[in-house]
């Protein structure tokens, strides 16, 4: 018993050390200074719950929370299901599946900063691909400034990432490959269609990997920063503001680190809540193997 405890300690200690070194201090500092007036350099001045009290009246903050929740829903409801669907299609080995599998990860190899530059060009109202394509299809008078009109800004910022599900496709295909082919084959012999096999055999077995994918995607969009910063800057107004960008602006432009950290704490709590709910919903850590 003591020997196995010793082993557990050996397995855990390097991780805990690194965690303490890099993560624990920021978390503690962030939480502690969220109750203070602090420029990020000098001595924080304790002001109780004032920072939190200001949140409900802060329009930028409320919009950022709304956007984060919407992006979370889109990540869980469109981004991940899209990736899983593509993986299921590729799993049937249609024509060109290897090529498409490789290509789908290509956008993930492009640094977000570069991808944002590209999309600034794509959605450029004068010379951009998007408007010119729509005009080429006969809508000659079509004209939209995608990133800066209230009707399209949120959509445009979302399009930049929502269909780039290469990582989801990759991990789902890996999981599909781990399912014994006999399951599918015997079902087909018994008269099931491919669609029924996917729906009744594959999808249930994918529950764990889908859960993992949803959690990673949702936490990622909660922190969205680069895509917004480099395309709309949060505008028009604060229509596309993200929590990540708001924290960045508060800390680096306004030197209001106390308030920025209060929003950081909100982000942390939102993330943990989402994590617990999603992990429960997908029963992520339970053994799903029925074989």
């Amino acid at each position: 018993m003591t020997r196995s405890r010793l082993w557990i300690a050996v397995f855990l200690i390097p991780t805990l050390l690194l965690f303490t070194l890099i993560y624990a201090i920021p978390i503690i500092v962030m939480v502690a200074t969220s109750f203070s007036d602090w420029d990020g350099f000098g001595r924080p001045e304790f002001i109780g719950l004032d920072n939190y009290g200001n949140l409900p009246g802060d329009r930028q903050f409320l919009l950022a929370v709304r956007n984060s929740l919407l992006w979370g829903l889109i990540a869980a409801g469109i981004h991940v299901p899209f990736g899983v669907a593509v993986a299921l299609i590729l799993n049937r080995r249609p024509f060109g599946w290897r090529f498409i599998r490789s290509i789908s990860l290509l956008p993930n190899l492009i640094p977000p900063a570069a991808l944002a530059i590209i999309y600034v060009f794509v959605f450029n109202p004068g010379i951009g691909l998007a408007n010119q394509l729509i005009q080429a299809f006969g809508f000659e008078n079509f004209q939209a400034n995608w990133f800066f009109e209230p009707g399209t800004a949120f959509l445009a910022v979302t399009i930049v990432w929502v269909f780039y599900a290469g990582v989801i496709i990759l991990i789902t295909m890996a999981e599909l490959a781990a399912i014994p082919p006999e399951l599918r084959e015997s079902a087909l012999v018994d008269g099931a269609t491919e669609r029924q096999v996917d729906w009744h055999i594959h999808v249930p077995l994918l529950r764990n990997v889908v859960g993992v994918g949803v959690i990673i995607a949702v936490t990622e969009v909660f922190k969205t920063f680069e895509y917004v910063f480099l395309t709309t800057g949060g505008g028009p107004g604060a229509e596309t503001m993200s929590l990540g960008l708001l924290i960045y602006n508060l800390a680096t432009v306004r030197f209001n680190s106390g308030y920025a950290n209060a929003i950081g704490v909100v982000l942390l709590i939102m993330g943990l809540l989402a994590f617990v709910l999603l992990a429960r919903a997908f029963r992520v850590t339970e053994s799903a193997r029925t074989r």
Binding site: F148, G235, P236, G237, A238
Partner: peptide, 12 residues
């Protein structure tokens, strides 16, 4: 950066 586009497009 946020307000000038709104002003230019007549949103404010």
């Amino acid at each position: 950066v946020q307000g000038l586009p709104q002003l230019a497009l007549g949103q404010i």
